[in-house]
Design a protein around this nucleic acid. Structure first.
Length: 261
DNA sequence: ATGGCCTTGTGGCAAGGA
């Protein structure tokens, strides 16, 4: 089973990119973030016409997440969860569904703006709630994958210029400590389970020719629970959609799982 | 060099993103 995550920065603008990418990658499940549309505007029919059903949680202008599932895979409708249970939040950042026996969580972690700000405090509180919920969720669903835009670059090698970024939002010690708390639950970072080229990122600023200069960050991740991690066959970042016309500033990450193993 | 670019919703710009 191939699973993937992609922050599309507006599903309205990027719908054709998503359809094209699904056609090429043929992933079984795709977690999307930053839909930036309300549920009534969700392009359900267009995606179904291309062989993918959707579960989503949208909102106006900001945030919004979805899980797209290829026809033929079993999805348990009853256990779909939107938002972090018990965490009051008007922002739509989380949706979870069980797909082909694997619990998938599509998450758009808060940006945080800058350390010391109100939004940064919200990010840390959100991360606390996510950590505690995942600890429970993993008990209930031992085969669990957390896919999304984490808005955290876990290590200096995930940053094009660690000195310039030191202490900044997305790389600060507080945020990295939160990432490590997830790892302490037993999660493994799919991408780092394999030899990877240096300077591989998932996001590049639209400004300053950042993509051309490869001035990016690796902030989109696929974490696998201990029960699921042994199934991991490969993990890669697909830079190609970032080269398309009018691209998202993020690019997809794919993990291939062999569930029979 | 604290900007640059993109999206949204609004209304002739501001907010948010990372």
């Amino acid at each position: 089973m191939k699973i993937a995550t992609w922050n599309v920065n507006s599903l309205k603008v990027r719908l054709q990119h998503v359809i094209d990418w699904l056609g090429e990658s043929k992933v079984d499940a795709l977690c999307l973030q930053e839909l930036k549309l309300t549920d009534d505007k969700y392009p359900r029919a267009e995606l179904e016409a291309h062989g993918y059903r959707s579960w989503f949680a949208g909102q106006k202008t900001y945030n919004g997440v979805a899980i797209l599932v290829r026809d033929g895979l079993d999805v348990d409708d009853v256990t779909v969860v939107r938002n972090i249970p018990g965490f009051e939040d008007l922002q739509q950042r989380v949706i979870a569904a069980t797909v082909g026996g694997v619990r998938l969580v599509s998450a758009y972690f808060p940006n945080g703006q800058a350390p010391g700000t109100e939004k940064f405090a919200y990010k840390l509180a959100w991360l606390d709630a996510m950590h505690d919920w995942l600890a429970q969720e993993m008990q209930q669903y031992p085969k669990l994958a957390l896919l999304g835009d984490y808005n955290i670059a876990p290590e200096d090698r995930d940053v094009h210029d660690p000195k310039a970024w030191e202490g900044q939002n997305l790389v600060s010690p507080e945020e990295r400590a939160q990432f490590e708390r997830l790892i302490a639950l037993g999660f493994v970072d799919s991408y780092r389970q394999f030899e990877q080229p240096e300077k591989t990122f998932t996001w590049w600023d639209y400004r300053m020719f950042a993509f051309r200069r490869n001035a990016g960050l690796r902030i989109d991740h696929i974490l696998l629970s201990p029960e699921l991690a042994p199934s991991l066959v490969s993990c890669e970042i697909d830079k190609v959609p970032r080269k398309w016309e009018q691209p998202s500033d993020h690019t997809p990450v794919i993990a291939d799982l062999n569930l029979a193993a």
